[in-house]
Amino acid sequence: MREILQWTTLIVCAAATAARIPSALRGTNRSLFFIFLLATAAGVLSLDVFYLPIDRALGGINLASFLLRLIVFAAIYLVAYRVSRAFGARDAYALISGRIGLSVLGLFSAALVTLFLLMDFSASSAGLADTGGRSQRNAALLPYYWATARGYPTYISLALLPSLVRTLGSRLPALVRAGAGLMAAGAVATTAGFLLEFAAPAFALERLVVNNAAVLFFVSGLIMVWLARVRAKGTGGLGTSSTDR
């Protein structure tokens, strides 16, 4: 179950990345390619099969887990940056890439680094599953580490949610609205994942499902909007005013 979910997420992300290669080479919206690429990298690092060898190569101190967290931060920031611009959400924009937004990103990153350095990670373990049992200090710090790791995506999700819901209820093309809806679902799932983190460890599987769903929702939402553009191009819709129809 666990493996199937993680592989599905990885395959979807990898396929989206591959499909974006031509546009990336053309130079259209490279950031979308990078979002998918980062999501794929995160998917790779979530799987034990890849995590353990990679971490061993990095010194076996769970640096890969730390890297994964930073990749997630980068991916969610890029998504939010693009979405807030696309949907003309000035409020979200300030909270994400304005001065406040960047300070929040800096704060979360600094907290993540500090907590990582304070913990003792002398053995590779995917998802830091065994780390808590290693020492008293680890057990005490681990919840904070997770709270920080999930906190930033949750913050971003909550900042984006209003503009996504607004778009969902607008008169824009169906594919765009579907995309906004899926991303809104992703934002909700991200928040739910954060809340479930505190209900651990009883809900390990539920947490995994919710977190994977969040990634899948965001990625499929982006794919929807992308399809809307492909469609608009096909009918010559993009850039032309509605009045000359």
């Binding site: 259209t28 919206n29 979308l32 693009r82 979405v83 611009r85 696309a86 949907f87 003309g88 778009t167 607008s170 008169r171 824009l172 093309p173 765009v176 995309g179 982006l222 909007v225 992308w226 809307a228 553009r229 492909v230 608009a232 993009l238 850039g239 005013s241 509605s242 009045t243």
Partner: peptide, 20 residues
């Protein structure tokens, strides 16, 4: 009506340019 259509179109264009 025309203005509303134009606004919708502008918004759509912006979304597609940023995310398409």
């Amino acid at each position: 009506t025309l203005r509303r259509q134009e606004q919708d179109q502008e918004q759509t264009d912006m979304i597609l340019e940023n995310l398409g």
